[in-house]
Computed example of a mutant assay.
Amino acid sequence: MTTTPAGRATATAAPRAALAAAFLQGLADQDFATLGGALAADARLRALVPRGLREWTGGEAVAGQFARWFGDTEDFELVEATLGDVGGRLQLRWRLRLRAERLGAGWFTVEQQAYADAGEDGRIARLDLVCTGYRPETDND
């Protein structure tokens, strides 16, 4: 439960936070089936990534895109994650650190921030995301 500025509790905050936590746990575990379970069947992802705006529709397609971004790694760790609420939308942010042959030698950091809306079934129906891209770590990091 969260409270409004006037001090009133909002009943919808707890289930939405649990939904966001399940999504983030699936990502942290590289368990894309669990991540997909937090998505509505007709979920839509709009993502601003370094190559431009991309869109995917359908829970399986969205979960599959996260698997393409963050699967097939030699090492993978969730460094930081936060959840919040902004104007009635779920706010999620995560920073990952990973090594993957497809990216080249060394460690990479990527951070994404997303705003989500739940559908009628209570799962994430819309996810609007911005991404840093894979940033190579340097000795200064």
Rank of each mutant, 00 (worst) to 15 (best):
R102S: 10
D141H: 15
A81E: 15
A43R: 00
F108Q: 12
A20I: 00
A18R: 13
L27S: 02
P50F: 10
D85P: 07
G7C: 13
R123T: 07
L27Y: 05
E60P: 12
M1C: 13
Y115V: 04
G59C: 03
G52F: 04
L129K: 00
V86M: 02
T138L: 05
D139E: 14
R99T: 13
A43M: 01
V79Y: 07
R135A: 09
L96H: 04
D31V: 08
W107M: 05
G52M: 03
G64A: 05
P5Q: 05
D117W: 08
Q113S: 14
Q112L: 11
T4C: 08
R93T: 14
E111M: 12
F108V: 07
D42S: 08
D128W: 02
T57H: 13
T10N: 10
Y134L: 06
E77L: 10
R16C: 10
E101K: 15
A61T: 09
G71L: 04
Q30D: 03
L53N: 05
L27Q: 04
G37W: 03
F108M: 13
D117N: 09
E111L: 07
W56D: 09
A28R: 12
G26H: 07
A105M: 05
A63P: 04
A40K: 04
R16E: 15
T138R: 10
G58Y: 02
G52Y: 06
G119F: 05
V79S: 10
C131H: 01
R51M: 13
R99L: 02
G88P: 03
R89D: 11
A81Q: 15
Y115G: 03
E137P: 12
R97V: 10
Y115S: 06
Q113K: 07
Q91T: 00
L96K: 04
T4Q: 06
E55R: 12
